[in-house]
Design a protein around this nucleic acid. Structure first.
Lengths: 236, 236
DNA sequence: ATAAATAGTGTGGTTTAGACACAATTGTTC
DNA sequence: GAACAATTGTGTCTAAACCACACTATTTAT
């Protein structure tokens, strides 16, 4: 074997924090493990890196396995590498987080993997250092969503402004003023009215909007704040 | 051996992007390699992860080896894992970036490793995917420094407001208004006047300030924008 | 018809950002 | 030592953004 004359090669895993939004609260897709180690406990969805596989491809594969989805927002978060983080064997974990539309995923794949959507607020303790991973992912989501309009990735193709507002309120755990929020969002011209209305509402039906994909791509490469009192938000 | 019944264990390296500031321009500490592979070319400072070593400890060790410094700002950036990124053998690289005070480091250690401070603007092409790493680090520095006052990590203990302004101008490659910048910085109450003056100046000597460490720690866990026209800044 | 709930739009005061002007300090030059 | 060049420190004004708040419109249930 030609290679570096250096000792240790290490097992590399990937774990995915999968965020969803059900209209009211932020949710995580978690696995009730029916395999060792730590069978019976909750964990993130994970897997091992293959020899011939780029990191991002591996994360995409793992996400696809669990959700049946392939074109989601998926971003590398951080790599966890404490020596004893995995009791079985030293394992590095490269952590990705993903934003998915909770309605789109494959229910069968979820059942196969014993996965459920869990409210972030009522998340059970997870194995190993997975709690830390979720903390970091939430921090990153808040960080990122304040500057880039990635919140849309959590919504269906057509959505109302009040739905979008609820999403931001869930992400940051704040109450926003309806009128100011609407004005600010509309000013971005990121939303295209469809003329259709939200049939699910019991009272006055809000208009359904679609994302202006062209504008969206521009925004992703720039800055934009979507929150009032931005400087006072705590990231903790 | 007890462990996961899984095939591939992979060599794990760490690479460090080390930022400095000489009063005028942002600089990188780079290595002119006198060892294989790619001897004679420029690269980041790197090393391999030891069996018994946490990731962050390894990054700290590598940074110490090169600079003789130990308590610098050091943050994990991203992990690079393309299959063929290293031609010798598949190697994952966990990348850290660090902000150091350019005056503090150990000149002997630099010489030993054939390292030099290079203006970011005149950076030579680096080996492997190191150019991408630097790009990502600069993006992260801009991202982070806009929200957190980490710029101070690049300055000496005592510094003037105009020096601080030049630093921000170098990071974002913009010109800022002296008066508005000063007002904004002073409003944060992050600076403590020392009464001393910058002797190096030829004309009116600016007051030297120290960082208010207590306030600084608070700011690190919150948000704060230090730039005007923030929403128009491009991250590219 | 009326009530209850939510959506959509408007208005005005306060704060902040950013353009700009002037006075003060220091070393150099003549 | 007076004039000057360079830079620092502080003040002011205007326009824009933020945000608190009020009113009207729509829909279903009773």
């Amino acid at each position: 074997m030609t290679g570096y004359q250096h000792s240790s090669r290490i097992l590399v895993a990937l774990d995915c924090i999968i965020f969803g939004f059900d209209g009211e609260a932020l949710k995580l897709l978690l696995i009730k493990r029916n395999f060792e180690p730590e069978s019976g406990k909750w964990s993130l969805m994970g897997g091992f890196l293959n020899d011939d596989e780029d990191l991002h491809d591996a994360a995409t594969r793992i996400l696809f396995t669990l959700t049946g989805l392939q074109n989601n927002y998926l971003e590398q978060l951080q790599t966890f590498g404490a020596v004893n983080r995995d009791p079985v064997e030293r394992t590095l974990s490269v952590v990705y987080y993903s934003l998915v539309n909770i309605n789109d995923q494959d229910p069968l794949a979820l059942k196969t993997h014993n996965a459920s959507w869990i409210d972030l607020d009522s998340k059970p303790a997870l194995i190993f250092d997975h709690d830390q991973m979720v903390d970091a992912a939430l921090r990153q989501l808040r960080y990122k969503a304040a500057l880039y309009p990635i919140g849309f990735e959590l919504l269906p193709e057509k959505f109302t402004v009040p739905q979008l507002q609820k999403l931001y309120e869930a992400i940051y755990n704040v109450k926003l003023d309806r009128r100011n929020f609407s004005r600010k969002i509309m000013a971005t011209e990121l939303l295209l009215g469809t003329g259709e209305k939200d049939a699910s509402s019991v009272t006055k039906k809000a208009q359904l909007f679609k994302l202006n994909q062209e504008k969206y791509q521009n925004y992703l490469s720039g800055y934009q704040s979507f929150l009032p009192e931005f400087t006072e938000l705590s990231l903790s």
